[in-house]
Design a protein around this nucleic acid. Structure first.
Lengths: 334, 334
DNA sequence: GAATCGGATGTAATCGATTTCAATGGTGCC
DNA sequence: GGCACCATTGAAATCGATTACATCCGATTC
């Protein structure tokens, strides 16, 4: 182990005080020309890097954003993470990630140990006491929970579900099955409500199969669907994975999509476009979601640290979901 | 903003010194029964949480692992991230992630600002000076670079490619096309070498189409394939995305998989199993990879901090890739 | 020439924990 | 009873930066 270079070493080498070195690095304009040069030379010579822990302690901030999601391996989050990290990196912040289902105590610690100064929360299922107990700038993204005392950002899931129904109805489908997500999930419930409202509004014969967003649930729903007496001709799945599972199982059972049944998904994951048939779905702009959430929470962090000379930039609150019409939906057979 | 509770406040409330509070929290067995109880009561009453920055500074460690990957939105990494975070969380470490393509200086800082004490590197394309300059426990995962002075972990890509060739050859294919990855990528090059060696060994007529792992490259390769005079009957793609792109484009052009051409991918991403046809591919155990890498780097961190009373657990170094035989490959037509 | 001003720099306090070292008091043994 | 020992505890040093405050010095003003 090479002994680390400290600010004192640099100061000594440059023949100045540590205060001057610190100033040279953080606000060079307050240091004299010649001194500045000496210091910079010494910094280069020693390969000095500021010790983050020391700086964080003194400044009572962590220069770090914490992302919490209920399941890091869910590929839906990947682009969101990437977008947040990009925004963060741009302003010199680091990014921590953690699964949000790691136990109450650990979770509380994450938000209270002073090593993060802002949070992007992608989980609406946590104990509100924990979330509100963090007392940090926080934004809810995608999922939400009204008990959390924090702004939220995401698409209008109710309206998006209505888009799906509208699309199927427009193609002449009069019987539609909804494969829902887990009932404890806000997104699932809201999409289902949107579906039900949309179906009712249009006088459509609806039914719901309880799923859980997974491929397997979709496959199971397909098997159920095949046994129905009056088979719905349209199916709206609460997630793309679920829709792919449905279609895949249909193929195995000898049904054609969209010939025998039109299927529409939700999310527009990467493979939706390349699946066979390509999947009609509701597009969630995940990149934009991550980016906007990051900007928001960064603005909140600035404000919390009293740097809010200028007000936080005006960011639009709601993100617009759109329907992408591909090959998995078609006219209803008569 | 609620003023944070400091250790001093707890000490005062419990009527003891800060040293005793600290000890109660980190090594309770050294504190008297009654004192311990008083302190714990005071901790609960105040809701005290240790300030991470202060502790990190004093102990000269960060309790954090840094993950670096060339593109966070690549869904191949999701499971790896999840596995690493799980292992880390279990031993009380936090996880930072960053794109590894953020510029030399930022990158150097990440490994030198003392806010991480171990690194899992998923990028073999960084400047070796930067990587070796970190001087932190580090493990290379999946991708690697011999110029990095650090252990590596991953599957044997050469052998895995041979598995693919063997499979196709076993099905009677005598002409095989390889859709490669970018030539500056170690994985791509090694897989290609394995392919070439495997083909030569078996007297197979080979050709290579230069791709870049993406869906689009696969589609492009398919268009190229369709124009070949003696069309290969087997195709080995360097990634699953690429294979899906190939198959999808084939379908659009009216070819059948595996009727007209057998396609095999690489990685076994989540959707490989549910694609139509389901994709024969080389399975990379990403969960195990992440988990093992995390264990390794944690052991290295322990050793670096002098806690290596016991030697690091004996972890197997190489991870085994296997071929998953699904529906996208079949006997070669005569 | 004295007083004033302000830019550049240094000294020392500070952030909030951990840990070394010394002091204390109780216990057991002779 | 006296002494050695051990378990507890506290005072103060420490980690490595930032920053409030004091100081110094040359230039400007009257």
């Amino acid at each position: 182990m090479v002994p680390r270079v400290r600010i004192k070493d640099v100061a000594m080498l440059a023949g100045v005080s540590t205060a001057t070195v610190s100033r040279t690095l953080s606000s060079p304009e307050t240091v004299g020309q010649k001194t500045r040069e000496k210091v910079i030379k010494a910094v280069k010579a020693t390969g000095y890097r500021i010790n983050g822990a020391a700086r964080d302690l003194r400044q009572r901030r962590a220069r770090s954003i914490l992302i919490l999601a209920p399941n890091l391996s869910n590929t839906f989050f990947s682009q969101i993470f990437a977008a947040i990290q990009e925004e963060a990196s741009e302003v010199g912040l680091t990014v921590q990630i953690s699964d949000s289902r790691i136990g109450r105590d650990r979770l509380l610690s994450l938000g209270q140990d002073g090593r993060a100064d802002g949070i992007v929360l992608l989980d609406g299922g946590l104990d509100p006491d924990v979330v509100n107990g963090w007392n940090l700038p926080l934004i809810q993204l995608s999922e939400w929970n009204i008990a959390y005392d924090a702004p939220r950002l995401g698409i209008d899931n109710h309206a998006a579900a209505d888009l799906a129904v509208e699309h199927l109805a427009g193609l002449g489908h009069r019987r539609i099955l909804h494969v829902s997500g887990p009932q404890e999930n806000v997104l699932a419930v809201t999409r289902q409500e949107g579906f039900l409202a949309g179906a009712k509004k249009r006088g459509i014969d609806q039914s719901v199969f309880p799923g859980d967003f997974t491929l397997e649930a979709g496959a199971e729903a397909a098997r159920f669907w095949s046994t129905m007496q009056h088979r719905p001709t349209g199916v709206f799945c609460a997630s793309d994975e679920c829709a792919l599972g449905f279609i895949s199982e249909c193929a195995h059972m000898g049904f054609e999509v969209p010939g025998d049944v039109s299927v529409i998904g939700f999310d527009d994951i990467d493979f939706a476009d390349r699946f066979l048939p390509s999947l009609t779905t509701i597009h969630q702009p995940r990149n934009e979601m991550g980016r906007t959430a990051a900007k928001r929470v960064i603005a909140m962090m600035r404000a919390a640290q009293g740097e809010d000379a200028e007000p936080a930039p005006d960011l639009k609150d709601s993100i617009k979901a759109t329907l992408v019409d591909r090959a998995s939906t078609g006219r209803a057979a008569l």
